[in-house]
């Protein structure tokens, strides 16, 4: 049914962030961010804690006023749309609602305020799996249920773009599976999805593109494949009967070689070239593996030195004593 609803609209909405900057006193939360969100794609929004993800999302929907720059949605500011909730649906904080209301009452109030067909309330409760809990007060909900209600709120106006801040938090396995499916359906129907998460594996599973920011600055904006290709983390792992000999051969061919475990980490040459070189030089290869980094590896590599809050390894025994 959700597919039916969302397929009714195949609008490719363009959201542009132009020189977007937000300063809180001397602290710059978002620093001259230029970005165009790709329509019809799920974009993962990543960054260390305090990197400016939530502030950016809030600036898109005018909750936070930019110090500099602007957010343009189809040539207009979000606040200039007569029915903005029908353009961009957002989930910023799942606990941001009156906990003494039931899910149905909460959605019904929003539907009334935004002049949305009341039938859509029933539909969203069904889509988000809250049908059986619709008459329970929100204060009795788990975080996962509140996330579902937040997503129902975001989708209530059948918007062209959906912005979700950490929607996987508190979700159980079934909820995560459901969210993955939902993102795919939304993107398939031409909607743009911007989703932030600390769960790299989930972003890797759902996102077509990734935006990485650190200390408010744009560090990367590309497709998942481009990101992996460009990453220094991608290499060929080689184990051979004569490690020193193959290392010499590879270095002669301008490869970047580093020792790793019982073998070598090779960059700048692909597996085929390494195999052929080994054959030419009569070296027996024990292992030749292409190591593709996880999004977490790439993220760590890109944001290295760009995090405001870094935890240090400590000896807890000593600390507690």
């Amino acid at each position: 049914m959700l597919i039916t609803i969302i397929l009714q609209k195949r609008v490719m909405q363009l959201i542009k962030l132009v020189n977007l900057t937000k300063k809180y006193g001397s602290k710059t939360a978002v620093d001259h961010l230029d970005l165009v969100l790709t329509p019809g794609a799920v974009t993962g929004f990543l960054g260390p804690n305090g990197s400016g993800k939530s502030t950016t999302m809030k600036m898109i929907i005018s909750l936070v006023r930019p110090t500099l720059g602007e957010v343009v949605v189809d040539g207009k500011a979000y606040r200039d749309f007569p029915e903005p909730i029908k353009r961009i649906g957002t989930l910023i904080d799942p606990s941001a609602l009156d906990k003494n209301l039931t899910a149905k009452q909460h959605l019904s109030i929003i539907a009334t305020a935004a002049n949305i067909n009341p039938q859509q309330v029933e539909e969203m409760l069904r889509v988000t799996g809250l049908e059986n809990a619709q008459n329970k007060k929100v204060k009795s909900y788990s975080l996962g249920m509140k996330q579902r209600l937040g997503i129902a709120t975001a989708l209530l106006g059948n918007p062209d773009t959906v912005i979700l801040d950490e929607p996987f938090n508190g979700m159980d396995v079934d909820g995560i599976k459901w969210l993955r499916g939902l993102f795919k359906q939304l993107a398939k129907s031409g909607k743009s999805v911007l989703v932030s998460s600390h769960l790299m594996s989930e972003i890797q599973a759902v996102a077509d593109r990734v935006v990485i920011i650190g200390q408010g600055k744009l560090l990367a904006h590309m497709t998942m494949d481009e990101l992996k290709r460009r990453s220094l983390s991608s290499f060929i792992y080689v184990e051979a009967n004569n490690l020193e000999k193959i290392k010499r051969v590879l270095l002669e061919k301008q490869a970047i070689v580093q020792h790793r475990k019982a073998g070598l980490e090779v960059r700048n040459l692909d597996a085929k070239e390494i195999g052929e070189l080994a054959l030419e030089n009569q070296i027996v290869l024990h292992e030749l593996t292409k190591v593709t980094p996880s999004l977490e590896d790439v993220f760590t590599e890109i944001t290295d030195g760009k995090a405001d809050y870094i935890s240090k390894e400590v000896n807890m025994d000593e600390t507690l004593n």
Binding site: I61, L63, R79, T90, D93, L97
Partner: peptide
Amino acid sequence: TKDLTSGAVHTNLAITPI
């Protein structure tokens, strides 16, 4: 203030950003 401080303001201002 209940609307402003309980966080419900996020939803309310998303509906009425003006």
